[in-house]
Amino acid sequence: MNDVLKIGKYEFSSRLIVGTGKYPSLEVMQAAHEASGTKMVTVAIRRIGLDDKSGKTMLDYLDREKYTILPNTAGCYSAKEAILTAQLARELLETDLIKLEVIGDPQTLYPDTRETLAAAAQLVKDGFTVLPYVLDDPIACKQLEEEGCAAVMPLAAPIGSGLGVCNPYSIRIIKERANVPVIVDAGVGTASDAAVAMELGVDAILMNTGIAAAREPVQMAQAMKHAVIAGRLAYLSGRMEKRLYANASSPMSNLIAIEKP
């Protein structure tokens, strides 16, 4: 089946986007990326340590032939910071892709919708392919789409919480109304969470902690790969209707009879 994920001018053969944070080692990260089947991985942008003379960075551990790199603006609390971070990421990575993340509060890590919208408008104008992290808020998602974002990325649950899809009805409404891909970003804790999200019809899932914080990250990456594929196929197949009472699968006619006592 040719089921390609299209984001702006980009196409991906996997619907799973994976982070590079929190792995027990870089070797485990690389193996997990491989096992997940992902085609796009995220990185963050930070100041260099002036004492570190090695010059080695995360980019030395990512095969850019295999993976598209999606830089994020994680840690930014204002549109201004996020815009400069995006511009630096573009210069560093020679990509116009940006995962726009403007945080509103350190405990919930919920996005600041006002600042996210302002940054999105500016970045779209500046030629970026903008993928904004947003609340599971259909109105905010619509507004980001109207600003020209190439996708919207509502959270399933708080970043790093692993709570799964907390508000499936909102995610469904977002998907029904969106004309751009909907990518569930954050909150997926295990394979069933990923399948649930995909069965709601979303186009892709971005996850990091769900894989990296598993006891066996590489095995969990493989589980997530299968869950995303299974959820996608189930969505495309159209599930049966739910019913309250049983409905036999075997014929109820031509049954044998025995003499009643």
Partner: peptide, 10 residues
């Protein structure tokens, strides 16, 4: 002056 690099992140 800000000098940045790519680091691990999600």
């Amino acid at each position: 002056i800000e000098i940045i690099q790519a680091v691990a992140g999600g």
